[in-house]
Amino acid sequence: MFRLTPIRAAIAALVLAALAGWASFGGYLAREMVAEIAVLAILALALDLVAGFGGMVSLAHGAIMGVGAYGYALANQAGLPPWPAALVGMAAATLTGTAIGAVSARLTGVFFLMATLAFGQMIWALTFRADALGGDNGLGGIARPPLPFLDSGDPLVFALYALVLAAGCLAVCVAVLRSRFGQRFEAVHDNPDRAAALGIAPERIRAQGFAISSMIAGAAGVLAAQHMQFVSPELMVWTASGEVLVVLILGGIGSLSGAVIGAAGFVLLKYWAADWTDHWHLAIGALLIVVVLAGERGLSGLLEGRRDA
């Protein structure tokens, strides 16, 4: 069951603060990377909510995030100002997740994984084929949100704005898990038969958890669209979802702080390794296997020490 231990809170706060500091004193590239980390962290948080605490490992989260990004882009193109358009994007992602969750929630384990793979790929294929969505060229010219007294076009302002959003999503996840709903969500994962005997309907709870997670994934999509000012179907392919899963595993699944660390570590490694080798996925693959063999506690598990979570 989720416990926001002081060490977890400290780790997450420290990482976010370090990223803010880095964005402030680093150059243009640092600021772009921090924004990218924030997007990935939010998506990983969304996935951690369902996979880490509900046992629902989803390969549709990239697609759901993409729906959020496209929703924002289309609403914005239709003339809606950025903030209402962001709500449209999140609502679209939530609706998509609600639909996927409603039909997939009765499946478990690998079957659930396959179902989310199928739905995610359906969304990707539809987007890829739809001329109204720009096909595989995607959509460009997406606006960033206006901020009071600040210019969101400035990379530093945007990086900090993205970090604030990531921190906000982390707080939302903590609140969800601490709520009565969160307890039930974890209970249904822990022992569905007992939960049912207590009057808790496992499928409904799982579907609701998936919808909440999709809303957060939608927020990641909106932020991604604002950051790149461009959306393409690439966001939605299942390998994108698989990559987020890797981020989560490397960071440490089921701890929330692991999502943030994993995202930071992954993006940093990507840029750092890209400087001298084209084959950095080799290291990621090996690392993934090592972490899985070591018991899936990832970086955050390493930082927390060997205590029982």
Partner: peptide, 24 residues
């Protein structure tokens, strides 16, 4: 369903204990 019967007033103990083992 099981949950709706539980809400209708049926309590259930299990032959092998059935608990939430990840919790206190």
């Amino acid at each position: 369903t099981v949950p709706s019967r539980a809400r209708a007033g049926i309590g259930r103990g299990f032959q092998q204990t059935s608990l939430f083992t990840g919790m206190t």
